[in-house]
Design a protein around this nucleic acid. Structure first.
Lengths: 266, 266
DNA sequence: TTGCAGCATTGATTTAAATCAATGCCCGTG
DNA sequence: CACGGGCATTGATTTAAATCAATGCTGCAA
């Protein structure tokens, strides 16, 4: 019955994951008082956006001794649902999808996580979704025990986690509206607009979008089939709203109108 | 186009909201050392489940001077989206729906909150949904400033809020799977099973379910139309899984099978 | 270079859920 | 007690998206 909704494997697509360099101590987040301390974290490009942003130099120094970075190849799992949740993860580069499966293989993606985002939703000590790399991805693995330690000592970190949880709740409500009430056209438009807002710093009317994931991932994120996603993108193209140089690179030509469509306003 | 999806008003249904009595100091949660202190909180029936559970007698005493309880009539708002978020709320009795609207009136409910649940999701100081009483409901209004004060002093309270946030995230992911990938039959079955798990302490095979909300609310929660919800309930009735004494009271006759249906296993 | 595998697109057909429409039921009210 | 309004249910019809099916494209490997 749901054959075409079966879980699909990752598109092992090149997504330009740049390697995280430990040997480039250009700390532009906070001046290291003692550059001899320069730890992996010191040169971390996502530190300003990540939960560890609030640590001072000494704390960061200890932090960096306890975390470690992992390269997760496209399609491989960072963790799986029901595994014991011992770590949190910050995405350093690349992109991760959070997936939940039904017994017969139907799949729903609940989020894509990219640079600076925090992963590791758990309940009673177990992860609640599969977290899989969409493309080659680097994550920073943070033992939960370490987090707990800092959470008490470093209010900024607890606050940061709380804020991220609130944002995530907000995103999920937003996504529930999409899944439950939007048309395919509105779903795809929302997806594209959200990507622009997440990645494109300059909110011009014309914006380039890189899709690290394949159509199957988009479909499972939006609660559609691959075919409907494809047809809808073609439709947006025919409406003159989109250029499609190739399946993984889109250019939005009129993001204002796309935004209106996303909200069901036309 | 979406006329039949327009936001529907509350069913002003009687839901047996029992009035919260201040004058009955039967503190079965924690023995009040000094019964002269007996505050409204002392007799609160939901305290063991609520965020204030971790307060000691003195803290609770101060707490009770700063909170106040409000009766919200069926259909009225506890708060509205985009209002300044100055308070959190604990549901004392009754039930609240969280609603998000699209410009043209389409509506998605993201949660029903009942006794002991915490309300007041906000982002950057503003509520993110409409919170409306499904039936006559009593809420305990807690100034956010008070929460912040206790959050620093009373780790248990911060932990309790964090736990509730995690649970909420978990529920929303669960709901995303439902909205994006389940059939109407599975959606309704899931809704019923979740209600049993939430309200029915004894997990017998036969369980009574009270629906405080009308079919419109159920439809907007499940991403369906009223008609489909109604037909699906009839279908479950015809399958021998359900008795429907009246629209607001259902009896599940085989919850094990209902559970299997909910997970798409048959 | 050719062939193949995996995606993506496009087209035809089916089907399930939305929409449109009518009726019934229950409760509160005059 | 009769009436009216708001829900809920049920039936008929439409329609949009899933499904089924075929073809095309791209990049990798033999």
């Amino acid at each position: 019955m749901f054959d075409s909704l079966k879980a699909r494997d990752a598109a092992p697509t090149e997504c330009g994951a740049q390697i995280f360099r430990f040997d480039r101590p250009e700390n532009n987040i906070r001046t290291a008082r003692n550059s001899a301390l320069a730890s992996p974290c010191a040169s971390c490009k996502v530190r300003s956006k990540a939960v560890c942003a609030g640590l001072n130099d000494e704390e960061m120094e200890e932090f960096s001794r306890n975390i470690h970075t992992r390269l997760v190849k496209a399609g491989k799992a960072v963790y799986r649902e029901s595994e014991a949740a011992d770590n949190l993860f910050t995405v350093v580069s690349g992109e991760v999808r959070l997936a939940n499966l039904l017994g017969d293989g139907r799949r729903q993606l609940t989020a894509f996580k990219s640079a600076g985002d925090l992963l590791g939703e758990n309940k009673k000590g177990f992860y609640q979704s599969d977290a899989e790399a969409v493309c080659d991805t680097i994550v920073c693995q943070i033992p939960l025990s370490l987090m707990e330690k800092y959470s008490n000592d470093v209010p900024a970190m607890y606050a940061s986690i709380a804020t991220k949880a609130q944002e995530e709740l907000c995103e999920l409500r937003h996504h529930a509206v999409l899944l439950g009430r939007k048309t395919p056209l509105e779903k795809v438009a929302t997806f594209l607009v959200d990507r622009i807002d997440k990645f494109d710093s300059k909110p011009e009317n014309q914006a380039a979008i890189e899709l690290t994931m394949g159509r199957g991932d988009v479909a499972d994120f939006l609660g559609l089939t691959i075919e409907t996603v494809s047809r809808t993108i073609t439709k947006l193209k025919n409406m003159g709203l989109l250029l499609v140089p190739n399946p993984h690179h889109l250019v939005v030509r009129n993001s204002a109108r796309l935004r209106r469509i996303a909200e069901g306003e036309e």
